[in-house]
Amino acid sequence: MSLKKILIKIMDFILLDCKQATFLVTKELEGSLTFWEKIRLKMHLLNCKFCYNFNVQNEKIDGILKATP
């Protein structure tokens, strides 16, 4: 196992993998995360451009849907 793979495993354990992270983004948009979930998600979003984009895009989608008369 290369160093990179080991690092990914450790990061996943501490900071969630992308599937978990996007799941928590979904839950957060509906407004119900525990304290630790919030911390772990924030840390993940700082490290992962894709999940960060996912968060921004879904906020945008919600905004546009809600703005519809």
Binding site: I8, D12, C18, F50, N53
Partner: peptide
């Protein structure tokens, strides 16, 4: 496993 497949991952909008 459970990470984005790059081609299908969210791009910058």
């Amino acid at each position: 496993v459970n990470h984005w497949i790059e081609q299908r991952a969210p791009k910058n909008w």
